[in-house]
Write a protein that binds this DNA or RNA. Structure first.
Lengths: 136, 136
DNA sequence: CTTGACTCTGGATCAAGCTCCACGGTTTAG
DNA sequence: CTAAACCGTGGAGCTTGATCCAGAGTCAAG
């Protein structure tokens, strides 16, 4: 059995059925095959794709971003127009996110480390970690 | 001059005035002092706090999360009840985010690396990077 | 005092991302 | 054949995070 229903897809990828249809509308998922009755049919590829979307979303990417990531990754057998450029921009964006998260992380760890007894921190290490410099 | 208006605060922290009032309503900012006229008064501490919020938001934290991070960091001179636990949970969350981002990063880098000419990737490295295992 | 720039409050409105609903056809187990 | 469980469509509704607006008071410069 390699084809299954929308409900099955939703279950396998752990998202709501309505969400699947919503993603289809938003072009994050391709138009699926239909059987005579009009029922949608999916395969494992769709499950993978949906899971990818779920993860990317969890990382704070907007659906639009995810769509472009997906396009990016599936364009490979077409031209290599601005592909690299777009991918590299994404990459820089991700690096920045990681760096910022690591700052927060350090701040939090310090908070945890300094607090055990009842703490002597005179002002918040988290605020310090992120609040120090301006910039965006 | 150590006290200033809401407009000035907004300018210094680079957010909209309405956003400042909105954050106040949502308890991310404390109730500010008021002058006789009812005008709000702020100081540098508020600027720092606001900037912190802006950054955390940029990392994908929900306002509610940010509020709790903030509470966490300002609770230090109160009890150390579940502080550590909360902070550690946050920390684990952040570590997970970083790990996931790094996966995407690797996938993207591979995409960039493999594509230069016109690529021979038979299926998306990004999907591979994130799509492999189940879990949340 | 007048004018223009600010500020106040409360509520309406927005965009994103879902989620729910009604009404009607389809499948499938018994 | 029939009931229960699914699925389809289109559109309304909800949550989050802002943003905008009206009507009215305040401030600072000239």
């Amino acid at each position: 059995m390699s084809l299954f229903s929308i409900g099955e897809l939703a279950r396998r990828a752990d998202v709501a059925i309505d969400t699947v249809r919503y993603y289809e509308r938003r072009q994050l998922l391709p138009q699926p095959k239909r059987r005579a009755s009009g029922y949608r049919q999916y395969d494992d590829e769709d499950v993978r794709r949906l899971r990818f979307i779920r993860r990317a979303k969890g990382l704070g990417f907007a659906l639009e971003d995810i769509r472009s990531l997906l396009d990016l990754s599936l364009d490979h057998d077409h031209g290599v127009h601005g592909l690299r450029a777009r991918a590299e921009a994404k990459l820089a964006d991700i690096d920045a996110r990681i760096a910022q998260l690591q700052k927060v992380r350090r701040g939090l760890r310090q908070l945890v480390a300094d607090c055990p007894g009842s703490g002597a921190l005179d002002h918040c290490p988290i605020l310090a970690a992120l609040g120090a410099k301006e910039s965006s």
